Lab assay of single mutants.
Amino acid sequence: MKVTIEENEETGKFTIKVKTEDGEEKTIEIPKENLEEILAKLPPNVEII
């Protein structure tokens, strides 16, 4: 699983794009305050880009 994290400076939010092993892609946008909480919940086999 690969996770790409991009900061949107205009909105102050982060866009998180997840690509699973089977090629499925999902995108979510979260507030900056929630980034550490989300990262802590990721499984250890995740590659963060």
Rank of each mutant, 00 (worst) to 15 (best):
E10N: 08
N45T: 09
I49M: 08
I30Q: 00
A40V: 05
K26Q: 13
V18M: 08
I38N: 02
M1W: 15
D22Q: 08
I38R: 00
V46T: 08
L35C: 06
K41E: 07
K13N: 13
K2N: 06
T20P: 03
L39W: 01
L35Y: 03
P31I: 11
E47F: 06
E29H: 10
E9Q: 11
E24R: 08
E33F: 08
D22V: 04
N34E: 14
T27P: 01
P31M: 12
K19F: 14
L35V: 05
E6L: 09
I16Q: 00
D22K: 07
T27M: 12
P44F: 10
E9N: 13
I38D: 01
L39T: 02
T11L: 05
T15S: 06
A40D: 05
P44S: 07
G12P: 01
E21C: 12
E29T: 10
T27W: 14
P43D: 07
K26F: 15
K17W: 14
I30H: 02
E25V: 13
V46D: 00
G23S: 02
E47H: 09
E36V: 10
L35T: 01
E6D: 04
E33Y: 08
T15V: 12
T20Q: 09
F14Y: 13
N45K: 03
G12R: 03
E29M: 09
I16L: 08
G12C: 06
P31W: 14
G23Y: 03
E29C: 12
K32W: 10
E47S: 11
E7L: 15
K17L: 08
T11C: 08
I38A: 09
E47P: 05
T4I: 13
I28G: 02
I48F: 08
I16W: 00
E25N: 04
E37S: 08
E36T: 09
V3T: 01
E10G: 06
G12A: 03
T27F: 14
P43Y: 12
T11N: 11
K13F: 12
D22M: 07
E9K: 15
E7K: 13
L35E: 00
V18G: 00
K2M: 13
E24N: 11
P31Y: 13
E36H: 12
T15L: 11
K19W: 15
K19P: 04
M1E: 03
E36D: 11
I5R: 02
K2I: 14
E21A: 11
E9R: 13
K17D: 02
I48E: 02
T27C: 08
L35D: 00
K41H: 08
N8E: 03
N8W: 03
E24V: 12
K32F: 09
G12V: 01
E33G: 08
L42F: 11
P43R: 05
T20D: 08
V46F: 10
I5S: 02
T27S: 09
E25A: 02
T20M: 09
T11E: 09
V18I: 15
V46C: 08
V46Q: 03
E37Y: 08
I28R: 01
N8Y: 04
L42I: 05
K17N: 12
E25I: 12
G12S: 04
F14H: 03
I30R: 00
T27N: 03
G12Q: 04
T15A: 05
T15F: 10
G12F: 03
E47I: 14
E21P: 10
I49S: 05
P44L: 11
P43F: 14
V18E: 01
K13V: 13
A40S: 11
L35Q: 01
E10T: 11
E33I: 05
N8P: 01
I38S: 04
I30P: 00
E6W: 14
D22E: 09
L35R: 02
I49Q: 05
K41N: 13
I28D: 02
T11W: 04
N34A: 13
N34H: 14
I28H: 06
E29F: 11
E25W: 14
E25D: 03
K19T: 15
K26P: 01
T11F: 05
G23I: 01
E21I: 07
V18Q: 01
E10F: 10
T4C: 10
I5T: 02
K17H: 14
E21S: 10
T20F: 15
K41S: 13
E21N: 08
K41A: 12
T4H: 06
E10I: 13
E25K: 03
T27Q: 07
P31S: 15
I38W: 15
V46I: 11
T27R: 06
K19S: 10
I16G: 00
E10L: 13
N45Q: 05
K2R: 09
I30F: 08
P43Q: 01
G23P: 00
I48C: 08
D22S: 10
N8I: 05
E7T: 07
K17S: 12
E24F: 11
I30M: 02
V18A: 03
G12D: 05
P43L: 05
K2G: 03
N8H: 09
I38M: 12
E24A: 07
E37L: 08
N34D: 14
V3M: 03
T4S: 09
E9Y: 12
L42N: 01
K26R: 12
L39P: 00
T27H: 09
P44I: 10
N34M: 15
T15R: 03
N8D: 09
A40E: 09
K41C: 12
I49N: 07
E37A: 10
L42T: 01
K13W: 15
V3F: 06
P43H: 08
K17V: 13
E33T: 04
A40N: 08
E6Q: 10
A40H: 09
I16E: 00
I5C: 05
N45S: 07
E7R: 12
M1T: 11
A40C: 12
I16N: 00
P31E: 14
K41P: 00
T27V: 13
I5A: 01
L42M: 07
E47V: 13
K19Q: 15
E29P: 01
E25C: 09
D22I: 04
M1D: 06
E37C: 11
N45D: 11
E24K: 12
K2V: 14
T15C: 09
G12M: 02
L39Y: 02
E25R: 03
V18S: 01
T15P: 02
M1F: 08
F14A: 04
I28K: 02
I30E: 02
E47T: 13
E9W: 10
P31R: 10
T15N: 03
T4F: 14
T20G: 11
E7Y: 15
N45I: 06
E10M: 11
I16C: 03
E47R: 02
E37F: 10
L35K: 02
E25H: 05
V3E: 00
L39F: 07
V3G: 01
N34I: 14
I28Y: 15
T20S: 07
E47Q: 13
I5Q: 00
E47K: 05
I16F: 08
I38L: 15
I48A: 02
K19G: 09
I16A: 01
P31N: 14
I49H: 09
G23T: 03
E29K: 04
V46A: 10
E21V: 07
